Simulated assay, not measured.
Amino acid sequence: MAQTLSLLRRAARYIRPMLLVAVLVGAALAWNDAALRQRIGLPMPAGEQVTAGFALCDAPGYAPNCVVDGDTFRIASRRIRVQGIDAPERDGRCDAERELARRATADLLAWLERGPFLMLPADQAGHDRYGRELQTVWREAADGSRDDLGDHMRRIGSARRYDSRAKVDWC
């Protein structure tokens, strides 16, 4: 019994620092991941305010700020993918998916056009494999509540939670 206690005490000397390092690494990752920060209730960093108007990217004329589809938009030369959602594809496999994509694109445009919103500063956003900024996009109300774009798009049925392991079947 004494031998077991001695062994546990020696192991604890090594385990405690490793646990502390794991907690600190986890906290650093949470601090830099806006979606995770929001889920666990950490405050969001100061956001970049966007006040620009938007149009559809395929509308006639030139629109530097435009909506590509239900989860992607542009601000000048920046291509932005809304973090955590997947919307139907405009060139989808069936008529139902293409129709849902048109609706999702219109819903994203409507949300962006409701007025100024916030995003993470560009240097704090990750990037996807296509080079698009992965952005958490939100509005803050006077009472301190948040209107998160990804949550809004999921709530109205225009997008689903993004899962990199499975492709969503919209048909």
Rank of each mutant, 00 (worst) to 15 (best):
M1C: 06
A2T: 14
A2D: 13
L5T: 14
L5W: 13
S6P: 00
L8C: 02
A11C: 03
A11S: 07
A12Y: 06
L20K: 00
L24P: 00
G26F: 05
A28C: 01
W31L: 12
A35Q: 15
A35Y: 12
L36Q: 10
Q38K: 09
R39S: 15
R39H: 13
I40D: 06
L42H: 11
P43H: 06
P43R: 09
P45R: 09
A46P: 09
G47K: 04
E48R: 14
Q49I: 13
V50C: 03
A52W: 11
A52Q: 15
A55R: 12
A55W: 09
A59G: 03
G61I: 10
G61K: 08
A63I: 01
C66P: 09
D69R: 13
D69L: 12
I75W: 05
A76P: 00
S77D: 15
S77Q: 15
R79N: 11
R79S: 14
I80D: 09
R81W: 04
R81D: 02
V82L: 07
G84Y: 09
P88V: 07
P88S: 05
E97P: 05
R98C: 00
E99F: 04
R103M: 09
R103G: 05
D107Q: 15
L109A: 03
L112Q: 04
R114S: 14
P116W: 07
L118K: 06
L118V: 01
L120R: 08
P121D: 10
A122C: 01
E133Y: 14
V137M: 13
D143K: 08
R146V: 12
D148T: 13
D151H: 12
H152E: 09
R154V: 15
I156Y: 07
G157C: 12
A159Q: 10
R165V: 02
A166R: 15
V168D: 06
